[in-house]
């Protein structure tokens, strides 16, 4: 979170469009306001801090909260990675990465280990995060209780008084309907045994990565105007019943390309004959493994060559 200087903006060529933007796109007052909200969020892990969310050059739902967080903390020395559902190469991820390369003049990467700021929609990378890294999550609905309790006054009171019985109602419904807690994404957690928090729609597979992480986790909801955070080394517990303990997803298959059996897999339908394959959702993790020579059943040599070509 280096405080940036205006140098970068000033050094932009005098008639280029970039010179009309402040460094990092947001004006200084807005960044100051957001940083203060972040500090408060870090000080009260899991607590939703209201902030004056600004209009962004993308629609709500495309990551306006995450972009504002990144814009407020990014500095010229940062290395920026942006993923969408784990992939670096989807339209949204590419656009946002380019956006920050332009307005913040930062280096970008697809390598999880290299990045200092990782903005994400709906995943946490498979590579364990390190001290000094910051995860920025895009959050559609920050309030985990909203689906059950529509009144904001009431949900605020519930957080204030730690009345979280209601959240179990949704888990109860799950077990009643499916015989197990079938919720797969946005699985509610208790942060620091105090605040109930929505981890954004990450798969519950990623919930354990929130616990005692070395990295700082920041969550931003642009439309809902809330920022919250999990500081490094914080206890994060996924809710469950005594007789239905929390479990993550498991696959019988392994990645068809890199043979990983420890990563979150996406199912890809291949044809209309029922053919399908499972591949790592984390595209960098998968290509990294392939670069190490690990091969899944569907990773032909040609495919590797294509990757090499693309890399060069």
């Amino acid at each position: 979170m280096n405080a940036q200087s205006n140098d970068a903006a000033l050094t932009a060529t005098s008639n280029s469009p970039e010179r009309y933007y402040t460094y990092g796109y947001l004006d200084e007052q807005t960044k100051r306001m957001i940083r203060r909200a972040i500090l408060k969020a870090v000080a009260i892990p899991g607590y939703q801090v209201p902030f004056g969310s600004r209009e962004m050059p993308v629609p709500y739902g495309w990551g306006t909260g995450g972009i504002q967080l990144t814009a407020a903390i990014i500095g010229p020395d940062d290395v920026y990675k942006c993923i969408d559902q784990g992939a670096d190469d989807t339209t949204n991820a590419v656009s946002i990465r380019r956006f920050f390369a332009k307005v913040a003049d930062v280096a970008t990467t697809e390598d999880t280990a290299e990045a200092t700021i990782i903005q994400s929609r709906h995943r946490i990378p498979e590579h364990p995060l390190k001290d000094g890294q910051i995860m920025v999550f895009q959050v559609p609905q920050p309030e985990p209780l909203r689906g059950l309790e529509p009144r904001e006054m009431e949900t605020r009171a519930m957080h204030a008084y730690e009345e979280y019985g209601l959240q179990y109602v949704s888990l109860y419904e799950n077990v009643s309907a499916f015989g197990r807690i079938a919720a797969t994404a946005g699985y509610p957690v208790m942060v620091d045994e105090r605040y109930l928090m929505s981890p954004s729609p990450i798969p519950k597979f990623d919930n354990p990565k929130l616990h005692n992480s070395q990295a700082l986790m920041l969550f931003g909801a642009g439309r809902e105007k809330r920022i919250y955070a999990i500081p490094p080394h914080t206890t994060v517990r996924s809710l469950d019943f005594e007789d239905y303990p929390f479990e993550t997803q498991k696959w019988e298959e392994s990645c068809a390309l890199c043979a990983a059996d420890d990563s979150y897999l996406d199912e890809v339908v291949l044809d209309d004959q029922g053919q399908r394959m499972f591949v790592c959702s984390d595209s960098h993790y998968c290509s990294d493994r392939r670069a190490q020579g690990l091969r899944g059943p569907m990773a032909g040599h040609e495919l590797v060559d294509i990757d090499k070509d693309a890399g060069q």
Binding site: L148, G165, Y168, V169, L171, Y172, E173, V175, D243
Partner: peptide
């Protein structure tokens, strides 16, 4: 009542509000 959750969950909710966390017992 909470119209969006089942009758059973409506009835069990007060127990969850009092801190009960065993699904089978509440059911």
């Amino acid at each position: 009542l909470r119209m969006r959750v089942s009758g059973g969950a409506n009835v069990a909710e007060p127990l969850m509000n009092l801190g009960r966390r065993h699904y089978g017992d509440m059911r």
